[in-house]
């Protein structure tokens, strides 16, 4: 219980709660738009953003957000260019982002005490008040935008052609969505680590997709799954001294395994009963 008395743990729990609210919303749209790897790309790019900030001596959070916004916009244009191979843009930007990050970090080596590994794997000890406020602001913005734009986004995601014919500004909406995803990743990345931030955004929605048949059902279940995964991951991370992002990801995977197994068994039992009935 003593973990709750530490300021950094309290901030970690606050951050986890906020992330659990936004991750399933973004995650579901990313999965349905076939962009689940975009989160990975943006997290690699966001490493470059951090490295740039450290190099030129500006708060890395801001350079990070700036770089990620530019790339998020670029991603939409690349998606248009390679219509049939939309994953190419992801492959290109992911490796370029990583390469730029490594080069910048090497150039800036020695100027800062922050290490690459801290951003690769994340650290709950380093969450500061400013990050919590940013996360809270972001949660409010995403929540409001979701409430306002849920119908247009729903149509855009289900059927882009119809969205166009009814006059929705589809390009604008796509870019805005990418930018929001980018900013979220830039804000969450230092906490859970660049390598696993996408897992935390994608997995709750992906697991929830197996449970609900309605859109809102997926999002609500996703929030519960994210909350359970993140909180228990944090506790595990504290107790075992493991990296938070990795602990959370493993717990989410366990949830996925349990749900898949339970669904399979339920299906099997139902089938069995039907079979026995027809026999008797």
């Amino acid at each position: 219980m003593e973990m709750f008395f530490y300021g950094f743990m309290q901030r970690a729990f606050q951050a986890s709660f906020l992330i659990s609210l936004i991750a399933p919303i973004l995650g579901l749209f990313l999965v349905l738009r076939r962009q689940s790897l975009m989160a990975d790309t943006l997290s690699h790019v966001s490493l470059a953003g951090v490295a740039l900030g450290l190099l030129i001596g500006i708060n890395p959070t801001w350079t990070n957000i700036l770089v990620v916004i530019i790339i998020a916009i670029l991603l939409e244009f690349l998606r248009q260019i390679y219509r049939t191979y939309s994953e190419i843009s992801i492959a290109i930007l992911m490796s370029v982002g990583m390469a730029v990050a490594l080069v910048l970090m090497e150039i800036g080596a020695g100027r800062t005490t922050l290490s690459v590994t801290q951003f690769l794997f994340g650290s709950i000890v380093t969450i500061n008040k400013e990050q919590i406020w940013m996360l809270l602001g972001l949660t409010i913005i995403i929540g409001l935008l979701y409430l306002i734009y849920q119908k247009p986004m729903y149509v855009l995601t289900f059927d882009e052609e119809t969205a166009f014919t009814v006059g929705l500004p589809i390009k604008m909406m796509s870019i805005l969505f990418n930018v929001l995803t980018g900013v979220t990743i830039a804000v969450i990345m230092p906490i859970v680590g660049a390598l696993l931030v996408s897992a935390i955004i994608i997995l709750p929605a992906a697991i929830s997709l197996r449970l609900s048949k309605s859109f809102y059902g997926v999002i609500l279940n996703g929030m519960v799954i994210a909350l359970v995964g993140m909180l228990s991951g944090l506790v595990a991370s504290y107790e075992l001294g493991t990296p938070p992002g990795a602990s959370i990801t493993i717990i989410l995977m366990l949830i996925f395994a349990v749900i898949t197994l339970a669904k399979y068994m339920l299906h099997y039992l139902k089938f069995d009963r039907l079979f026995n009935k027809s026999q008797g």
Binding site: Y154, F158, E161, T162, S214
Partner: peptide, 24 residues
């Protein structure tokens, strides 16, 4: 103007019900 695209052009695994699609 109403448009009915080819059936294959949308994602039928989308988590939504028939009624929700019509409401669209």
């Amino acid at each position: 103007i109403g448009y009915v695209p080819q059936r294959g052009s949308v994602d039928w695994d989308f988590p939504t019900t028939a009624l929700d699609v019509v409401t669209m």
